[in-house]
């Protein structure tokens, strides 16, 4: 055992310096230089004010905005959580029923009433945005057809045409909405 002390201690110090300090600092240096925006959290700044991150959802409650998905942390991005409620949970089913009831008999996609994994999901499915067009159009007094175009313009297909799902970034959509019909 004693003969193993020296290599054990030396190697843990060497690898702490190499993998725990030099490696992350090198990635920070190169990342900041090559991909400055992404490395700093994909910040959205308007008139010198930080509005949020393009990758992190934020809470919307007003009728004049599209709302993101239900969140277990109410979009508090200093932390992150899902509800962790199981499929047979009365608490989950009651929450789903209440959210679904807000849309009456209209057919709605699952992502609109279920909470995301992170609590910070920035996206909605295109159907999730479409289900809110009538409400937003009424609140802003604009034509629903124009809004449908706006949603379509802010819809991204799967990455490389095959990976992942089509989606609408809610913050980007609402920013476009403010610019289009303030």
């Amino acid at each position: 055992m004693l003969s193993h002390f020296r290599p054990a201690l030396v190697l843990i110090v060497v690898f702490t310096l190499l993998c725990g300090v030099a490696y992350p600092l090198a990635i920070t240096g190169i990342g900041q230089a090559a991909f400055s925006s992404q490395a700093n959290g994909s910040q959205i700044v308007r008139n010198g004010t930080l509005l949020g991150s393009a990758l992190i959802g934020q809470a919307f409650t007003a009728d004049r905005y599209f709302h993101g998905r239900p969140s277990a942390v109410n979009y508090d991005a200093s932390t992150s959580s899902g509800t962790n409620l199981g499929p047979s949970s009365k608490a989950l089913l009651a929450a789903l029923a209440e959210r679904a009831a807000a849309y009456g008999d209209a057919t709605i996609p699952a992502d609109l009433v279920t909470a995301s994994g992170s609590g910070l999901d920035p996206d909605l499915s295109p159907a999730g945005a479409a289900a809110q067009i009538a409400r937003v159009a009424a609140a802003r007094g604009i034509d629903e057809a124009r809004l449908r175009e706006l949603v379509a313009a802010n819809t991204r297909g799967p990455d490389l045409g095959i990976l992942g799902e089509p989606r609408v970034n809610v913050l980007a959509l609402n920013l476009a909405l403010d610019a289009f019909a303030p």
Binding site: N84, G117, D123
Partner: peptide, 9 residues
């Protein structure tokens, strides 16, 4: 089942 899942994924 979208509970606990992310839209982009």
């Amino acid at each position: 089942n979208m509970e606990g899942k992310e839209v982009r994924l």
